[in-house]
Design a protein around this nucleic acid. Structure first.
Lengths: 215, 215
DNA sequence: GCAAACGTCGTGAAATTTTCCCGGCGTTTG
DNA sequence: CAAACGCCGGGAAAATTTCACGACGTTTGC
């Protein structure tokens, strides 16, 4: 354990899973796990006090989610290196995570070597994406599934968010100070733009694209 | 490692997570992990060839899901002891798992001690449920959220399943050989029975109750 | 065994929602 | 400055949802 070891902060709400990370990582020379957190707030606090070289974190965290935690840490330290390690084999999540400031995205289905490889890449300043997500991103390009975040205007996106949050047309109209008619029109337009025929498909598309995390 | 050690089969599609299980379990005397599987088919095959005393498995597995895997193993060996260890803090999943034949349900947020405790309980013939799920089950009783599986008739449940699978009213009518009108009536009746006002709420309720696993 | 209750299927008609087409208004862009 | 675009909503047709109702077979309870 030399003084030049890279220091790591682990963030995952599942203690047994952290045990797994640690077990894999401590077999690698040059890496040292110096702290662990089980939620976003704790991760943020520990980042500030411990200043690790790298954060490995899950996305599904209680309280403020993983994406938001990435954002906060990066806000505090523009140079923070965060590697997202999650179960979501979902291009939508990956895009969101990277846009929020993560430097890598690896799925938990990946073999340990992939994680280790990604850790080293991120420490070396590269952006690391696991092969399955690379593939998913490629597929989503090819299949041409419309990305909600891309084709919708801000207003439409906001309405979509409110719709997914189980609000009625009237409540949304109230919230946005517009007529229910406008909300209904937007609702219809959103489905049209996203190429879905029913609300059920709409919700499922939102799930695929990571717009709906908590149920 | 005595000859009377209890033998364990680990099933989880995340290799790093299996690493965590193993690390926790091997600290316990009397337990021995003899095999690991990454999906349902492999788990079933290994169960038959290795005949472990206990299976610890995740629910989200590629191919045939966890619930189905539980069902198959129990069909092959009525005495199989299966402990579900999953991220889903969801009473609906727990109910389904236990009904499918699992002998325990522990969430991954639980501390390692809880897992160890549950392993021992199941090996001792008890049913082990982690405290958070006990609590959730209690809450769902109190809040009185209608359980789809309970209040819906078989036919209604079937229609709900098809609706969630992104079928249109016409396609479902076709599939069930009834008029689209009947499907529409049932759709309306289902929402009424479940106490939801929109399809969006319907999907979210289905998610909460574990009726919709893959997106 | 028989009536009552329930599940299933469907019709028809009213109420509501969805969809499409439209115009106006302000901002941005080339 | 003109064209494009986002935003807001009215009007009307189209589609869907909802409600009331009846028929039929099965199950349940007395």
């Amino acid at each position: 354990m030399s003084a030049t070891d890279a220091t790591i902060l682990l963030v995952d709400d599942h203690s047994v899973v952290r045990e797994g990370y640690r077990s894999v990582l401590q077999k690698q020379p040059g890496l040292r796990v110096i702290a662990e957190a089980a939620d976003g707030e704790e991760a943020y606090r520990l980042y500030k006090s411990e200043a690790p070289d790298l954060v490995i974190m899950d996305l599904s965290l209680p309280g403020i989610g993983g994406i938001e935690t990435v954002r906060r840490i990066r806000q505090w330290d523009k140079a923070a290196r965060i590697l997202v390690f999650t179960m979501h084999e979902n291009a939508g999540f990956a895009v969101q995570a990277i846009r929020a400031g993560a430097r890598g995205y690896v799925t938990k289905t990946s073999p340990p070597e992939t994680l280790v490889r990604a850790v080293k890449d991120v420490l070396a300043g590269k952006i690391a994406i696991s092969p399955d997500i690379d593939h998913e991103l490629a597929l989503s390009r090819i299949s041409g599934e419309t990305s909600a975040a891309d084709v919708l205007t801000p207003r439409e996106f906001e309405v979509l968010r409110l719709l997914l949050a189980e609000n009625t047309t009237e409540e949304i109209a109230e919230t946005l100070h517009v007529s229910p008619k406008t909300v209904a029109n937007l609702h219809s337009l959103i489905k049209d733009k996203l190429g879905v025929g029913s609300d059920i498909e709409l919700v499922r598309l939102a799930l695929r694209q990571g717009l709906l995390t908590e149920v």
